[in-house]
Amino acid sequence: MNWSAKIITHKKVKRIAVYFEQNIQMQEKIKECEGALWSTTKAVWHVADTVENRFRFELIPHSQSLPSREGIEQIEKFINNLRSQRYSNSTVVSYSDAIKSFLTYYREKPVNEITNEDVIIYNNDYILKHDFSASYQNQIVNAIKLFFQTIRETKIVIDKIHRPKRAKVLPNVLSKKEVKLILDAHSNIKHKTMLAVIYSCGLRCGELLALRPIDIDSKRNIVLLKNSKGKKDRIVPLSPKILEMLREYYKICKPKHYLFEGQIEGRAYKARSLQLILKQALAKSGIKKPVTLHWLRHSYATHLLENGTDLRYIQELLGHNSSKTTEIYTHVSTKSIQQIKSPFDDL
Rank of each mutant, 00 (worst) to 15 (best):
V197M: 15
F147G: 06
L170A: 06
T115L: 10
K180N: 08
V141K: 14
A134G: 03
I161A: 07
S90C: 01
P171C: 08
C205K: 15
S90V: 02
H130D: 05
S187I: 06
K145W: 12
I144D: 02
A167I: 03
R107H: 14
Y122V: 01
F148N: 05
K192D: 04
S101T: 13
E108A: 10
V173M: 11
K190L: 10
S94Q: 08
N112H: 13
Y136N: 00
Y199I: 12
N172T: 00
T91Q: 04
I182C: 09
Q149E: 13
V111N: 15
N112S: 13
N188F: 10
I151V: 13
K180C: 07
K180H: 14
K109I: 15
T150D: 11
Q139A: 04
C201D: 05
R107N: 10
I182R: 04
I140T: 00
K177N: 12
S200A: 15
K155L: 14
I144M: 08
D118Y: 07
K155W: 12
E117I: 10
I140Y: 04
Y136D: 05
N138G: 12
S135M: 05
I121K: 13
K176N: 04
T115H: 10
S200W: 01
L203S: 03
C201F: 11
L170C: 07
S135Y: 11
S94G: 02
Y136M: 05
K129I: 01
N124H: 08
R163I: 01
V141G: 06
N116C: 08
T104G: 02
T193F: 09
E153V: 11
I120M: 09
E153M: 09
I114V: 11
K129N: 15
K129M: 10
S101L: 12
S94Y: 08
M194T: 10
I99A: 10
T154A: 06
Y126N: 10
H186G: 04
Y122A: 08
D118N: 14
K160Q: 12
A185K: 03
K165I: 03
A196M: 10
V119R: 08
K109H: 09
V111A: 09
V173I: 10
E117N: 10
K145G: 07
I189D: 09
I120R: 13
A143K: 07
A185R: 03
L203R: 10
I99D: 02
V197T: 15
S175Y: 11
N124R: 15
S175W: 03
Y122D: 09
H130N: 08
S90A: 09
Y126M: 04
E113Q: 14
E117S: 03
V169D: 03
L181S: 09
D118P: 13
V111D: 11
N138M: 04
R163G: 06
C201T: 10
S90T: 11
T91E: 05
E178R: 01
K160L: 09
S135K: 01
L128G: 02
